[in-house]
């Protein structure tokens, strides 16, 4: 299309549009465009903030291959993502399905399940350190007699034991599924009732109705929650930092990717290396999201898509 001379009105609209958008135009330059370029540049340098960056080529990226803590943090993050995200979805979905039975007091139950998810992150982290306390915590106080009577011995050491620290964090994360539950519940309420009734008349069992009517209908929301959960897992930081005082202990068992990145940047002041880690993080998130989209394409049903 050949550019035609702008009319006075178009020019006025252009200036008005730019004026209204000026905050974000400044913001995009200052807090996105420039930092992206700078971060890319720093990732090829040795940089401690105190002294100017020194170009070292791809050394930061090459170093990743030999960095044990990088691999450890990646493995920890994968462990968390692979278990916490799907289990979180199943729990949130189960709660939403239960609430959707429309028994009396639904709103009250919904509130009970939802409230933990809005407890401030630091507060809930501090609380759960104490709940998980191996000697005096409430969880082991409940488990000890139970496991004792079954002859299973002592309950887990949770944050005192590298084997149990990640399961502890995953259990903590399940306490906060209220947000996903609300998303699923809203989606469930949009599933056409006639479909269920028709299927019931045809004698379909409730399991089949769940599998062939409900789940396909809410699959876009399931994909959304899965993607957000995955991104959240890669960026998982605050609880791990607060519960372990930034160490990622015991024995680096809760050193998640973003926690390691933070420590590299702000404890060791290796800003160049931290930027390289950040770019790898970005690529990992992109790759995993794309993979999730691809692999779910056949499973996700969009109402009105006509198939």
């Amino acid at each position: 299309m050949r550019p035609r001379p702008a009319s006075a009105n178009e020019r006025r609209q252009l200036w008005a549009g730019l004026a209204f958008c000026s905050p974000v135009l400044v913001g995009l330059v200052a807090f996105t465009a420039y930092p992206i370029l700078a971060s890319l540049y720093y990732s090829f340098t040795r940089y401690s903030v105190m002294k100017p960056p020194v170009w070292i080529g791809t050394a930061n990226y090459a170093h990743l291959a030999h960095d044990e803590l990088f691999w450890k943090s990646l493995a920890n993050t994968a462990y968390y993502a692979v278990i916490a995200v799907p289990v979180g979805i199943v729990v949130a979905l189960a709660l939403a399905l239960l609430l959707n039975l429309k028994v009396r007091g639904q709103a009250l139950y919904r509130t009970f399940f939802f409230v933990p998810s809005i407890v401030p992150l630091v507060a809930s982290s501090v609380l759960w350190i104490w709940l998980f306390n191996p000697q005096n915590g409430a969880i082991n106080a409940l488990l000890r007699p139970l496991m004792g009577s079954l002859g299973l011995g002592e309950p887990p050491g949770w944050f005192a034991d590298p084997v149990w620290s990640k399961p502890a964090i995953i259990l903590w994360s399940l306490w906060g599924v209220g947000g996903s539950m609300v998303i699923f519940l809203a989606a469930l309420q949009d599933v056409p009732r006639e479909l269920h009734e028709a299927a019931q008349v045809d004698g379909a069992r409730s399991w089949h109705r769940l599998r062939h009517i409900t789940l396909p209908f809410i699959s876009p929301q399931i994909l959304f929650v899965a993607i957000m959960g995955l991104i959240g897992a890669f960026q998982f930081f605050t609880p791990a930092y607060v519960m372990t005082q930034g160490t990622g202990g015991p024995v680096d068992s809760t050193l998640f990717y973003s926690l390691y990145l933070f420590n590299v940047a702000f404890a060791d002041f290796k800003m160049g290396y931290a930027c390289a880690l950040a770019w790898i993080l970005f690529l990992l998130i992109l790759a995993c999201t794309a993979l999730l989209f691809r692999s779910s394409a056949r499973l996700v049903y969009y109402a009105g898509e006509g198939r």
């Binding site: 974000v24 995009l28 200052a30 807090f31 996105t32 420039y34 930092p35 992206i36 700078a38 971060s39 720093y42 903030v49 991104i231 890669f234 960026q235 973003s258 990145l261 940047a265 800003m271 931290a274 930027c275 880690l277 950040a278 770019w279 993080l281 970005f282 998130i285 992109l286 999201t289």
Partner: peptide, 21 residues
Amino acid sequence: GILLGTMMLPFQVTMVPVFVM
């Protein structure tokens, strides 16, 4: 479109340069 694209960018990528700034 650009704005929607920036939502994909993790905070960690810009964290260091913004701190330096």
